[in-house]
């Protein structure tokens, strides 16, 4: 099945030129707390991709049946059910990581990306295109999350995906892990710099 151009942009736009975190400024809440290490960031990204694409599809299928007045609460309950499912899957198969993610999996419910996409895209478009839009936005979110986690883990622990990458000789020569990166300010600063870099490369004009 060949994809129409519009479906394609629904998928590719959010990856770079209209990234949900760095350009639409949505869903930062949960993005930063889980990025001290790559493994939690990767699991969190998959959780968000799953919730976002499924909830987008379901809401898009239901869009003609949802009365406009109560649409927010309907969207919230669809999203919350997906989040509960995801939480249970994580608890069953990735228990250690789900312990580290603690409340942040449940907080996917209030992640503005998911509500935002449901409201802005899934309510107007068909299920197929909404699924692509959900996948694209989820991946765009994941890209930034993994980018932030990469730098924080590298600079803060000297590891990548729990493997030591900074050689021992560096430490003997006086190199030290940057404790600040593990703490919350590190996340804000790295994300600020990523946004800056992306705006320079992407040639986005600030309003």
């Amino acid at each position: 099945m060949a994809l129409s151009k519009k479906s394609k942009t629904a998928f590719t736009d959010p990856l770079m030129s209209n990234n949900p975190i760095s350009l639409q400024v949505l869903g930062i809440c949960s993005a930063l707390a889980v990025t001290t290490k790559l493994d939690t960031a990767v699991v969190m990204s998959f959780a968000v991709i799953a919730v976002l694409s499924v909830s987008n599809t379901v809401i898009s299928i239901l869009r003609k049946m949802i009365p406009a007045k109560v649409r927010i609460i309907v969207q919230l309950s669809v999203i919350a059910s997906m989040v509960i499912l995801t939480d249970m899957v994580l608890k069953a198969f990735f228990y250690d990581i789900s312990k580290q993610l603690s409340v942040f999996v449940a907080l996917i419910i209030t992640n503005c990306i998911i509500m935002g996409r449901a409201e802005a895209f899934a309510m107007q478009n068909g299920p197929g295109r909404s699924l692509l839009d959900g996948l694209g936005n989820g991946l765009g979110y994941g890209l930034i999350l993994i980018g932030v986690a990469f730098f924080r883990e590298l600079l803060g622990f000297g590891t990548i995906y729990n493997r030591q990458v900074i050689p021992e000789s560096f430490y003997q020569a006086g190199y030290e892990n940057m404790g600040l990166m593990v703490l919350s300010p590190g996340a804000f600063i790295i994300l600020g710099l990523i946004v800056w870099a992306q705006r320079i490369i992407g040639k986005v004009e600030e309003e």
Binding site: S22, V25, I189, G192, V195, E206
Partner: peptide, 12 residues
């Protein structure tokens, strides 16, 4: 850097 970029750095 204007807008969200500088705000993130300031929040840091």
């Amino acid at each position: 850097l204007r807008g969200i970029g500088i705000t993130m750095l300031l929040t840091g």
